[in-house]
Design a protein around this nucleic acid. Structure first.
Length: 490
RNA sequence: GCGGGAAUAGCUCAGCUGGAAGAGCGCCACCUUGCCAAGGUGGAGGUCACGGGUUCAACCCCCGUUUCCCGCUCCA
């Protein structure tokens, strides 16, 4: 059993060797926190996103209430722009929270970092009775701007007035379109809006392969519901999202669902749970977040109506500046919902299942990597590397292999390949020994190998080899389509 | 941001005291075999991370930079 640091190195090495993940801009020396997906990686990640979209949106049944819940619900999708009006990030609170002036102390033995606006109330680590800068040894740097949002300029003119940001999350694109969806999609509460897209955060320390990247892809749902039903829906989404990972193969003890403690909750949240995976690069017993499912109350829609909110006891209130005006005003638009059942106008509550596509892809790769041994022709066990990816996620669904390059086997195999290719990503390979070709497909995670042999030519049957067991069944070529469909779609 | 380590072929790594750039695997072609990797012959692939410096001569020594790893720090 391979684990820990050793497993990380093997997974990273396999990702490079087989074309799953490359470092960005590698020929120029690389760029920290950015990654490229190679020919197999793009298939894996696309399959993952497709599985999410199919399971959450496209195949969602709008007419049936989930067991134990008060009503059915609708699901619709959205694809919003990466750059949005700068006021979006000010009203949402990201601008203030992601944006700090920091001061470092260069003194030997100190090296501490302080928020420039909190120097007076901070304590010098070398002399805790004094504030930073008051001790004789202190060597404070100038205040430097740390902005975890990527800044850019709209239009060719570089000018503070044209500053904007690459979105640090996809969620805000959904909230600012709440009215549009309500007005056009004929949805009523409760309903969810789903979006998959890139987000950008200027992480201080990108680390652990693709786990903490500066450019990453999110799969987010904002689920809007009546305040009185929000707790039930929160539990529904929390359990459903956990089960989704299990169904796709993260079924080991390395996956867990963890409810946040009350002191861990964000200022707006009244309940959050994380789906976490014990990534092999983390210390024993530690887990990394794959997805957060947050009960956000009415925080988001209110923020975009009124402006940036802050907590005041049990309440969220509009933050005001010295002159009493909103610190960061909202849109001023009415984002309330008229409930036909009660005749009341309400601010819907939001449940937000927010998943990281890259983190999920990495977890599935780590979980799938395994080494075993299978007997050679003399019965001697020989080592093997195999990616036991769920067939829905596997980059290549099947490989079609002529046993030899003679007697018309390649021609028949290519015919089958072309037929299957119309429905799935399948590979054709005639190079090297048959055992070598099986191993190549095992390393790429291909769940099935279809082999054309002499018997195929005489009676139209082929063998289908299973990646995980290496067992083969012989079936008529005419039944291949059905056989593959059953294995891939379950 | 701080401290430590590392960087040589697609991957894993050798390379002595400074003196002609290497191996295994992988990849390509041909031959052989024909249902579970590594049989034969041949081949492609390297500005030894990048930029300076020392030296008759640098993968090797020195300085700087970048990236990765480890530990702090940070983590909406």
């Amino acid at each position: 059993m391979v684990e820990g640091r050793q497993l990380v190195e093997k997974v990273v090495s396999l990702c490079k060797r087989r074309g799953f993940i490359f470092q960005s801009s590698e020929i120029y020396g690389g760029l920290g926190g950015f990654w490229d997906y190679g020919p197999l990686g793009v298939e894996l990640k696309r399959n993952l996103k497709d599985a999410w979209w199919q399971d959450m949106v496209a195949r969602h049944d709008d007419t049936t209430a989930p067991e134990g819940l008060p009503s059915p619900y609708s699901m619709v999708g959205l694809d919003t722009s990466i750059i949005m009006h700068p006021q979006v990030w000010k009203a949402s609170g990201h601008y203030d929270l992601f944006h700090d002036l920091l001061v470092d102390c260069k003194a030997d033995g100190c090296k501490a970092r302080f928020r420039a606006d909190q120097l007076d109330s901070s304590h010098c680590p070398l002399k805790p009775s004094k504030a930073p800068g008051e001790h004789s040894a202190c060597q404070l740097t100038e205040a430097r701007e740390f902005n975890l949002m990527f800044k850019t300029y709209i239009g060719a003119l570089v000018d503070p007035e044209s500053e904007s940001y690459l979105r640090p999350e996809t969620a805000q694109g959904i909230f600012v379109n709440f009215k549009n969806v309500l007005a056009t999609a004929r949805v009523r509460l409760p309903f969810g809006i789903a979006q998959i897209g890139k987000s950008f955060r200027n992480e201080i320390t990108p680390r652990n392969f693709t786990f903490r990247s500066r450019e990453f892809e999110q799969m987010e749902i904002e689920f809007f519901c009546r305040p009185g039903e929000s707790s039930a829906w929160y539990e529904y989404w929390r359990d459903r999202r956990f089960a989704w990972y299990v169904a796709l193969g993260l079924d080991s003890s390395r996956l867990r669902l963890r409810d946040h403690q009350s002191d861990e909750l964000s200022h707006y949240s009244c309940g959050t749970a994380d789906v976490e995976y014990a990534f092999p690069f983390l210390p024993e017993g530690e887990f990394g977040e794959l997805e957060g499912i947050a009960h956000r109350g009415d925080f988001d829609l209110r923020s975009h109506m009124e402006g940036k909110l802050v907590r005041d006891g049990d309440e969220l209130i509009l933050q005001r500046d010295e002159s009493g005006r909103p610190r960061h005003p909202g849109s001023g638009k009415d984002l309330t919902y008229f409930d036909d059942d009660t005749g009341e106008r309400i601010v819907p509550h939001v449940i937000e299942p927010s998943a990281g596509a890259d983190r999920a892809a990495l977890a599935f790769l780590c979980e799938a990597y395994s080494e075993d041994a299978i007997p050679d022709e003399k019965g001697v066990p020989q080592p093997r590397v195999v990616l036991r990816l769920h067939p829905r996620l596997a980059p290549v669904k099947a490989a079609v292999l002529p046993l030899t390059r003679k007697e018309g086997m390649p021609e028949l195999a290519q015919d089958l390949y072309r037929t299957l290719k119309q429905n799935w990503n399948v590979a054709y390979d005639e190079k090297g020994s048959i055992g070598r070709r099986y191993r190549r497909q095992d390393e790429s995670g291909t769940p099935m190998c279809v082999t054309v042999d002499r018997e195929s030519l005489s009676n139209g049957t082929v063998t289908v080899r299973d990646r995980d067991t290496t067992e083969q069944v012989r079936i008529p070529a005419a039944e291949l389509h059905e056989h593959l469909a059953e294995r891939i779609n379950g």
